[in-house]
Design a protein around this nucleic acid. Structure first.
Lengths: 119, 119
DNA sequence: ACATTAGTTAAGTAACTGCTTGACTATCGA
DNA sequence: TCGATAGTCAAGCAGTTACTTAACTAATGT
């Protein structure tokens, strides 16, 4: 139950479910109790609990109980991990396209200069 | 097989598997044939094919066959979709923290002014 | 005190995943 | 032409997921 260090596997897996994404969307605006999360979600409270547990294990959500209500809030580090992975992939991909651009430009006009294309 | 419009469900699901993430990482650098993708991956070619098929359905990868080799390349729109969803959540979350900061500052010194805290 | 509210636990189940193997079909290279 | 290469298709299978219902516990409001 104390598995809060986020992994890419866990975070992407958690986000792959539309119910859990809806919960994350809701919690991005403000914290909420489990039954608030459950209210719009045509499924049993037990099912919602299971989603909350998975979100918590994935590191996307933290929660604490006081009295009989468990309040959930978003824990942004896990989202940041996923976002960074995607951004890194895109950076690589863009770099490759840049190189490709240079190569094509060089083919067009085989000068040795870098980066600037001709007007 | 022509299901290339990316959805959040499909993209996050595809990215939830470490094998498929490895493939996306590989393809972010340059296009590759199916068997190139398979080479480092201790599993049957058929299994790799199934991963490629899922990546393609998710919209993360495109591929085309010439001769007997199918070349896969990354299709960045799907990654962008996922990245944007995450960024939007974070934006909401940050906005909420800003408001919270204002409220706390106001509580500290209940003036009606916006934004600046006292030194 | 007692009913209601909020959550928890456990067990069961239908559908889905991530593989496997085996049989098959096209190229390509010598 | 013939064998190796690259990929495809289909069936099957163990493990996982997303629920369900039912029984239970613990705070709260009246």
């Amino acid at each position: 139950m104390l598995n809060h260090q986020p992994t890419l596997d866990g975070v992407f897996r958690a986000l792959a479910d539309p119910t859990r994404r809806a919960m994350v969307e809701r919690l991005s605006e403000r914290p909420a109790a489990v039954s608030e999360l459950a209210a719009p979600l045509e499924m049993s409270l037990a099912a919602v609990m299971q989603h909350v547990a998975l979100l918590e294990e994935s590191g996307l959500v933290r929660s604490e109980k006081q009295g009989r209500v468990r309040t959930c809030r978003i824990a942004p580090d896990a989202l940041a991990l996923a976002e960074r992975w995607i951004a890194d992939r895109r950076a690589l991909w863009v770099r490759r396209l840049d190189r490709l651009g240079e190569i094509l430009a060089d083919t067009d006009a085989p000068a040795r200069g870098r980066k600037k294309k001709r007007p």
